[in-house]
């Protein structure tokens, strides 16, 4: 089995896996980072979103071996120690989560939106979430959370 190495949340990590192992499985099962979730098998739900070399990627669409040498950020790497990131605070303040299962993917995807568009409109946020499914919130408070995060992160006014 090949050995795959990557920098995950700032730490160099490596592990052995079958060639067919998806990045999400490698993160969850080999590296024990279970914050990234699997909600479907057709790359629709977005629960597995992580950042690969700075871009939001559904980690079920990539083999672990394809991410060899990459810089990965998962939900576990968003906060600065115990200090929450502004977007995490925004999700908590705005009740942007209920069961919490889609939340890591939502947060990773929203961070990517705000990186490219610091002041998105409601419509832009809703369109951006096209690849992230939530069954609990009706999206209302997720959109509110992202709007609040944009303000907190200095984009929106």
């Amino acid at each position: 089995m090949p050995t795959v190495s990557m920098t995950v949340n700032g730490r160099k990590m490596s592990g052995e896996c079958e060639e067919r192992t998806l990045l999400v499985s490698f993160l969850r099962e080999t590296l024990g980072l279970t914050g990234t979730h699997v909600g479907c098998d057709t790359s629709q739900c977005g629960a597995c979103c992580v950042h690969v070399n700075g871009d939001s990627v559904k980690s079920c669409t990539l083999l672990a071996v394809q991410a060899d040498g990459a810089e990965i950020t998962t939900i576990e790497g968003v906060a600065n120690g115990e200090e929450l990131h502004a977007i995490q605070e925004a999700f908590r303040d705005n009740h942007g989560l209920q069961c919490g299962f889609c939340t890591p993917g939502m947060i990773m995807s929203a961070l990517d939106l705000l990186k490219h568009n610091a002041n998105p409109s409601e419509t832009e946020i809703r369109h951006h979430l096209e690849g992230n499914l939530c069954r609990c919130t009706g999206y209302h408070n997720i959109v509110k959370s992202i709007q609040a995060a944009a303000v907190a992160m200095g984009g929106a006014s």
């Binding site: 699997v38 939900i75 929450l84 908590r92």
Partner: peptide
């Protein structure tokens, strides 16, 4: 009241059966 349970979910520390 902001939810007590949220912190573990927004930091990836939830504990679901598959975890």
């Amino acid at each position: 009241v902001r939810r007590k349970e949220d912190k573990r979910f927004i930091t990836g520390r939830g504990n679901y059966t598959d975890d």
